[in-house]
Amino acid sequence: MMMKVNLSLLFILLIGQLRAATADNGPNDYLVTEIATSLHSPWAAVQLPDQRWLITEMGGTVVTVKPDGSMTRQSLALQDLYVNGQGGLLDIALMQDFSMSQRVMLSYATGNDDCNALTVATASLSEHGELVNIAPLLTTSPCRDTPAHFGGRLAVLADGTWLVTTGDGFDYREQAQRLDSQLGKVLRFREDGQAPADNPFPDAPYVYSLGHRNPQGLASDPHTGRLYQQEHGPAGGDEINLLIAGENYGWPVVTKGIDYSGARISPFEEYPGMRDPLYNWTPSIAPSSMTWYAGNAFPALRQHLLVSALKAKGLFAINMSAKPLSSRRIFATIEQRIRDVVADADGNIVVLTDGESAALLKIAPE
């Protein structure tokens, strides 16, 4: 006997499934416009309250982009700036009191091929739009002789203290587990460059957490205050972590990745006393930055971490309210190496592409 099919009901069900699938894939109606082009190896972008953008370039310059699209480029007076490999001028972030003080925080590599490190400094934005009065606050130790894995991401906490991520120097990965080294760590410091008294390790006063490889993403949930950190793994094992003071995140004792040669780095994917990642990408996407999205332009992306990727050439969204967590590519038409991702004052998503001729792109609802 043949069963009669209610075609109207079937059509409704199919439409519902299609809409559900479309919603799960993220925003589909969007426009991509250029805010700035002809950028030279940019690393970070920040929007000022007056809608101007400041963009760091690794060679030691800062590009200012006005709302009308006009651009100026300033070479910063950074003493001992080290530009080689992954080293150079890196992150820029606004002080909490920026509207009054006009001050920013910078991170950059200093030294030479034989001895280089990560430095954090403050600077002031003059009435002419230039960064002046650059004052170094701290330089990591020990120095390394490799031009790789500097970390360098900055974030200010609700109490006014700051975090900066440091890489393991590539050839010094064992130092990520040593408290007498500031390599492979997240450091916490005050605006004056001193270590807060309530940091978790009395014998390592700046160390907030340890066991990191090359962390380049920090973001916080403004509602809960939870901190999230993201880092490059080797061949596989890129991570998103819940960042907690005093915790050990395992590198290189624990990793889900392998060496670029194909050799195993460690037999352990978990280990007592070391925190597992909330999420990992294997194979690697090479995550380069991260932001917590709370804007109104794309409601479907609220409560998501947005992660930019170099190797995977795109932008990924992690729904932090889902269990288990999952990663999906969004805005699939952007197939470029992405160095940084932020949200602007209107909730639009802004990405900074990577390379010698890069761009700052705005993604807005269509």
Rank of each mutant, 00 (worst) to 15 (best):
P49Y: 05
P49F: 01
Q51T: 15
Q51F: 13
L54D: 05
L54K: 05
I55K: 03
M58D: 06
V62S: 04
V65S: 03
D68A: 09
D68N: 15
D68L: 09
M71C: 12
T72P: 01
R73H: 00
R73L: 06
Q74R: 06
Q74I: 06
Q74D: 13
S75T: 15
A77P: 05
D80K: 07
L81M: 04
V83N: 02
V83W: 00
V83Y: 10
G85F: 02
G87T: 09
G87R: 03
D91F: 00
I92P: 02
I92R: 09
I92V: 12
A93L: 02
L94D: 08
Q96G: 15
F98G: 00
S99W: 00
S99K: 14
S99A: 15
S101H: 09
S101K: 08
S101I: 05
R103Y: 00
L106Q: 10
S107W: 03
G111Q: 07
G111C: 04
D113M: 12
D114W: 01
D114G: 12
N116K: 01
T119E: 11
T119Y: 09
V120F: 11
S124C: 00
S124I: 01
S126C: 09
H128N: 15
H128R: 13
G129H: 11
G129A: 12
G129W: 10
L131F: 13
N133G: 06
I134H: 07
I134V: 14
A135H: 15
P136C: 07
L137R: 13
L138N: 03
T139Q: 12
T140F: 00
S141N: 11
P142C: 11
P142R: 12
C143Q: 10
R144H: 11
A148D: 15
H149Y: 14
F150H: 06
F150G: 04
G151D: 02
G152R: 12
R153V: 10
L154A: 03
L154H: 06
V156R: 13
V156C: 11
G160D: 06
T165N: 08
T166F: 04
T166H: 04
G167L: 08
D168V: 04
D168Y: 03
F170W: 14
D171W: 05
R173E: 14
E174P: 05
Q175T: 06
Q175D: 15
Q177K: 10
Q177I: 10
Q177L: 13
D180T: 05
S181W: 04
L183F: 05
L183P: 01
L183C: 04
L183R: 09
G184W: 08
K185M: 00
L187F: 09
